[in-house]
Design a protein around this nucleic acid. Structure first.
Ligand SMILES: NC(=O)c1ccc[n+]([C@@H]2O[C@H](COP(=O)([O-])OP(=O)(O)OC[C@H]3O[C@@H](n4cnc5c(N)ncnc54)[C@H](O)[C@@H]3O)[C@@H](O)[C@H]2O)c1
Ligand SMILES: NC(=O)c1ccc[n+]([C@@H]2O[C@H](COP(=O)([O-])OP(=O)(O)OC[C@H]3O[C@@H](n4cnc5c(N)ncnc54)[C@H](O)[C@@H]3O)[C@@H](O)[C@H]2O)c1
Lengths: 251, 251
DNA sequence: AGGAGCTTGTGAACGTGAGAACAAAATCGG
DNA sequence: CCGATTTTGTTCTCACGTTCACAAGCTCCT
């Protein structure tokens, strides 16, 4: 997250409506839990119920909610619909956000076909690709358009969120184009570190990293005592060849 | 992350080879940066260089690396190949890990087609789906197999990592089956909170949540002064209708 | 050989986040 | 109307993560 957070060093000035980042990341989870409860016809839920549904502990949940205001009732719990609305408003999904997806390959197709965004406050307004053989292809009720049209689309549809699903190589260029066109939030799937100017938020989703984190813990489970017991400082040539583990930047 | 961390409350006992979770999450990023440097023919890099390539600050990078051991040379920097190997070994990607993917729909197809895992220490050994019309379909050099074969595959190929790309509904069932079959690490794409027994690690990738986090920040950028200035405690019926924002659990 | 110049590794200070615990507020039964 | 009961909102404490700043250690040049 590249957020120019101008927090002055004074006392814990939380009054300025600054919700901790960790809390912001959990609000969508609560939102989903509330929607599930609501769909089951449940009108009221205690912090304990909600916490269970969201997979967190109840003290944390109550503290998170307290940043939004006092929306519960002591001795009773939270009104599901009401709280759902308050969280949705806080996150900003009561309005809907226009999104463009750039790079309609494997992943881009999957995202384009996904119906789950529309119901969550996001509207995909364009699928863009630089490959002329892809342009014109229909996916659902949308058509792949030329990346060159980016600027006019962003302007016409007031697009503020861009999703990058191109190979790693062109990702920074695509990112720059998005930013230049006026997009101020980017979700990046390409395995590169993108740099953006201040004021632009960027988040990444990186499957290889997730798997590697799992692998690390997995190794400790099985290993524990069976580890090859680290050659603490083997000569530089004391290491196996390791063809290309760790994954270059190529697509 | 559902890890039974048995840290006793004594002094900062870090000697037991416990690498902080935040550091573990960055090691794959360093690995990728090192691979990129290596591919450019760079043999040595300072913490400053590496930090830039990885998009973090250099003090953090040095501290992270210090948990692995002293692999740098003062006054010089880090040997790219050597450090790369050490990190790869620490994460556990010098060996390769067998992975099964369950649910070969939009996302499952994209993952199956993705070539980036093989080169990063992961080997997809099976694509599983419950839909009989999908079973038998070829994707690259693999064939979709029946989910019923899960147990034998896990055993035969010593699979420790499972990826869930089914709709939310069946995800917990699939998860239970995976765990019962012996899988101890799970990467979940379905928008539900999965519960797993101790000793099983679970990570989730949730695109809607990522977008919602971006939306939150986006709202604060544009709003700032133009916010509808919160009806602090409107009557319960004082809120708009909000059809189904927040996104139920359905696929 | 010795000193200048870098760069690492880490101690210490600071900030953020998690969880236990409890007082305050609401309901309900009598 | 009052006390028992429930559950929130918040305070306090501790753990974790980040950043600064600098001594220790390495190389290279004279
Ligand atoms: N597919 C996966 O499961 C998966 C998993 C992890 C990471 N990723 C990453 O996600 C990204 C996309 O993966 P993919 O499998 O869909 O790749 P892909 O090659 O199938 O698709 C990439 C698309 O981007 C388009 N493109 C290339 N350059 C472009 C440009 N300058 N402007 C606009 N469009 C451009 C290409 O025409 C292509 O259609 C890659 O960076 C990949 O590393 C993918
Ligand atoms: N496609 C996306 O871009 C996207 C984005 C965000 C989240 N997701 C989530 O990822 C998941 C997969 O999305 P998708 O678009 O690929 O869905 P999909 O409906 O295209 O595919 C789901 C697949 O799972 C299979 N399946 C269903 N029940 C199963 C079971 N019990 N055992 C084995 N296989 C089973 C189905 O046969 C189907 O092939 C969903 O939970 C979705 O919410 C997808």
């Amino acid at each position: 997250m590249t957020r120019a957070s101008s927090r002055r060093p004074g006392p814990p000035t939380r009054t300025e409506r600054g919700i901790p980042e960790a809390t912001v990341a959990r609000l969508p989870v609560y939102l989903r839990a509330l929607t599930a409860l609501s769909d089951s016809g449940i009108a009221t839920a205690s912090s304990e119920d909600l916490a269970t549904a969201a997979g967190v502990n109840s003290a944390k949940l109550r503290k998170d909610l307290s940043y939004l205001g006092s929306y519960g009732t002591r001795g009773v719990g939270y009104d599901v619909e009401y709280l759902r609305y308050q969280i949705a408003r806080e996150i900003g999904v009561t309005q809907d956000w226009a999104v463009v997806i750039v790079g309609i390959g494997n992943l881009g197709h999957a995202l384009a076909n996904y119906s789950g965004f529309g119901t969550r406050g996001f509207r995909i307004v364009a699928l863009l690709d630089a490959d002329p053989t892809l342009v014109g292809e229909r996916i659902g009720d949308m058509e792949v358009r030329d990346f060159a049209q980016l600027e006019e689309i962003v302007e016409a549809d007031r697009v503020s969120i861009g999703v990058i699903t191109t190979p790693a190589g062109p990702a920074q260029d695509v990112c720059d184009r998005l930013v230049a066109a006026g997009v101020t939030s980017i979700l990046n799937f390409a395995p590169v570190v993108l740099s953006v100017p201040d004021g632009v938020d960027i988040r990444k989703v990186d499957l290889s990293i997730e798997l590697q984190i799992l692998a690390y813990h997995e190794q400790r489970k099985s290993g524990e005592a069976a580890l090859p017991q680290v050659p603490e400082l083997p000569a530089l040539n004391g290491m196996p060849d390791l063809p290309s583990v760790g994954g270059g930047v190529g697509a």
